[in-house]
């Protein structure tokens, strides 16, 4: 269908389609570019960048669970300086929006990172990680503290004109309240959800499977939770939502959009099939054509509830 247009706009961020590659599942683009044409996806969200390089957690960092996996990478990353000198030049080669995910252990670090990256034209948006469950400082403590999330959003907003996305934790009592303060403090969108806190023990050694004890649970096991969180935010707050959590196929993407997402992120699936985002995009196009839909907005939040809610 010639009039099919899957593009969407979030703040000033223009995406040709709603399929983003999630932070921490595509590195800085180089490995996955051996499998797919990165220009075809809607956008790439970098591995979390912190002010200083982070070595990350000791092994073991990964443990598989039923229909999911726990990870405790510990935000291992090259740090701001090497990201600027080595990774941005590589990403310049692609005609695809780059969303830079930022992790920090203090408010000042978030601001400093965003300021340092503000003038790089290639970076179209920031996704602020306030909810990493597997580092000891920052991360989840911020994501659990609504005043802190408000403060981070407010301060980062003052430091950037680019699209500002806050990645929300599902490990809170009411995620909509968090989305609301993000909106009130100037965020353009929220990503929902980050991983859920999980753990596993070996029944023979009685030791934790992960050196960090706790990890973030991802994969299809968490998709129903992510759908519920997207729906809750959509009903309560008028802010674009980027749905993320356990997407394995194009049907899952459609489900997220119906529940209220404007765009989605493919995460754990990239580890299993690094080409999946491209076939998912084809599946979405076919669905839109078959349902006579021409834009994301026609489907977004189009759930039908029979119970009077």
């Amino acid at each position: 269908m010639s009039n099919l247009d899957l593009s969407i706009k979030i703040g000033s961020l223009e995406l040709s389609n709603p399929i983003l590659l999630a932070s921490g599942t595509v590195g800085y683009g180089n490995e996955i570019s051996e499998f797919i044409d990165l220009n075809k996806v809607g956008g790439i969200i970098t591995k979390s960048i912190s002010l200083k390089p982070r070595k990350g957690n000791k092994p073991q960092r990964i443990f598989e669970t039923p229909a999911g996996m726990l990870n405790a990478i510990g935000l291992a990353n090259v740090g701001l300086e090497e990201f600027i000198s080595q990774k941005i030049p590589f990403l310049e080669k692609f005609d695809v929006p780059i969303i830079c995910n930022i992790a920090a252990s203090t408010l000042e670090e978030y601001v400093e990172c965003v300021r340092a990256l503000e003038n790089f034209e290639k970076i179209k948006a920031f996704e602020i990680n306030v909810s990493c469950p597997n580092v000891k400082e920052g991360g989840l403590q911020f994501g659990n503290d609504i005043r802190m999330v408000a403060k981070i959003t407010e301060n980062v907003r003052l430091s950037t004109k680019k699209t500002l996305i806050i990645k929300l934790s599902p490990n809170v009592s009411n995620i909509s309240d968090f989305a609301k303060v993000c909106k009130e403090n100037g965020a353009d969108a929220v990503s929902a959800i980050n991983t859920l806190v999980g753990s596993a023990f070996d029944i023979n050694s009685r030791k934790p499977k992960l050196s960090n004890v706790f990890g973030g649970l991802s994969g299809p096991a968490i998709k129903p939770i992510a759908i519920a969180k997207v729906f809750e935010i959509h009903r309560a707050v008028d802010i674009p939502i980027i749905g993320v959590g356990g997407i394995m196929n194009w049907q899952d993407v459609i489900e997220f959009i119906i529940a209220g997402a404007s765009a989605v992120q493919i995460g754990t699936l990239n580890f299993i099939d690094p080409t999946a985002s491209i076939s998912i995009l084809e599946g979405i196009k076919n669905y839109f054509v078959n349902k006579n839909l021409t834009s994301i907005n026609q489907l977004k939040g189009s759930y039908i509830l029979d119970n009077g809610n």
Binding site: T25, G27, E31, K47, I62, M69, N71, N270, F271, P274
Partner: peptide, 10 residues
């Protein structure tokens, strides 16, 4: 997980 460098799990 991935086997080619993106998950940083190993």
């Amino acid at each position: 997980a991935c086997g080619f460098g993106i998950c940083q799990g190993c």
